[in-house]
Design a protein around this nucleic acid. Structure first.
Lengths: 243, 243
DNA sequence: GCTCTAACTTGGTAAAACAACCTGTCGGGT
DNA sequence: ACCCGACAGGTTGTTTTACCAAGTTAGAGC
């Protein structure tokens, strides 16, 4: 039997048109062939053509205007720039992917900001796992993860060793929770003396602080990751389409 | 004549189902009525039902599984957090939407960072429009927009008055350029003495700086917006789905 | 208890029709 | 000659009917 399940026709059409746009066959700003032309050329029905063009429009490759036609926008610059957001890498990638040492792994009373993000009462406890990340032998970032106590039970988070598995996979397989989205807060403050010393930074330069609250689809907070970066050595970069 | 253009049927169905999910009529985890049930209840055809359910799935309201049915996930926590990103509001909304005064509007030599984002030679000139934004009578942010000289010609950017139109619409109608996406950089630094005075902030608290480079679909830089926020009074918040 | 089938589900394709919108052209009028 | 409206022909947007394919489940029959 043919195990090579062919992709649906509309998906093939999407790929064919993407190739033509990328190759310059359909340059940006030009008018795409009309629906009828595509029907004749590819030998498919109109719903199939429309389904393919809908995908392209939703992905940002083309614009459509009723009565005029569909215009090529070019390869969506976003598609390539899908690099992980600041804190996200530390949630999905295994700890062994980044050089660093675990400097704290225990249940502690949570700071106010973390309590708010986790929907916990102030001064209640949560499990904290904090690592000092190094690049080229120099300490560069402090990454902390707070997890509610009931979620940390039965996991390997207490280990002082680097986890060979990403936090996301670990919690998903052990506790059956599903990460859905992240609410991110970015702020800046001056470093405490101990922090400046840990990071080897001058104590008169600010610290960029990124807080990422991980939630499931219903909005329940599952974990909070905090990334502290010396602002003189790091920036946050990101790209997104305009509505 | 009836000016109240009715929304398409599939859009009405989307709204109806969203209301039922939000009201708890279709609780998260439950099975949505099958396509045939919805066809009978709403008196529409199957493609219409499928179109509505496709929108709901793409927006994250439901999950679908072939052979079993469609499961309610709940209101996507993202939908509400679709507020504009930090710098974006100043590009689309008219200046009159935010209280503030124009404190600079002239062609100036661009700083290095701006030159890099605009793909200009260092020390070349660009048009700068800078405003001091106030909330509740207190100055809170400095918003600067750099536009290449050739794009600023023939526009109202030189006016000291607040523009009644958004920068996006203005440049789009006057110069025919299309905003496509934004590359955003976030960093922190200490304020200059003049900046601290302008913003009425203590000079030992850091300044959050957001740089948004607006580009068209081909990646050509069209403008750069810089937002300066005192870190003790403002934070950046954002939400995004996990890949 | 086991298997197999029937009946359900969603996914995909085809053919047809109408509506809304844009852009020319061809008039008639000034 | 010029301007302006009507109109025809193109485009995309929406809706309907119909059929087949693939995955899941439950019950009939062994």
């Amino acid at each position: 039997m043919s195990l090579e399940s062919v992709p649906p026709k509309y998906a093939q059409l999407v790929q064919a048109l993407q190739r033509r746009i990328e190759s310059g066959d359909y340059p940006p700003g030009s008018l795409l062939p009309s629906e009828n032309q595509l029907i004749n050329e590819f030998g498919v029905s109109r719903p199939t053509v429309v389904a393919a063009l809908r995908v392209l429009r939703e992905q940002g490759w083309i614009d459509s205007q009723q009565g005029k036609g569909r215009f090529v926008r070019g390869r969506p610059a976003m598609a390539s720039a899908e690099q992980p957001r600041p804190g996200q890498a530390y949630l999905t990638a295994p700890e062994t992917a980044s050089a660093g040492e675990v400097i704290e792994a225990a249940a502690v009373a949570v700071p106010n900001r973390i309590a708010a993000l986790l929907n916990l009462a102030p001064k209640s406890k949560a499990f904290l796992r904090r690592r000092l990340i190094s690049r080229d032998g120099e300490p560069t970032e402090v990454v902390s993860v707070w997890v509610p106590l009931e979620l940390s039970e039965g996991t390997d988070l207490t280990s002082a060793e680097s986890l060979p598995q990403g936090l996301r996979e670990h919690l998903q397989s052990r506790k059956g929770v599903r990460f859905d989205h992240i609410v991110e807060q970015i702020t800046a403050r001056m470093p405490a003396t101990a922090e400046a010393k840990q990071l080897g930074m001058p104590k008169n330069t600010p610290l960029l602080a990124v807080y990422g609250a991980v939630r499931d689809a219903s909005g329940t907070a599952l974990a909070v990751v905090e990334v502290l970066l010396p602002a003189d050595r790091h920036e946050l970069e990101d790209a997104y389409p305009i509505g």
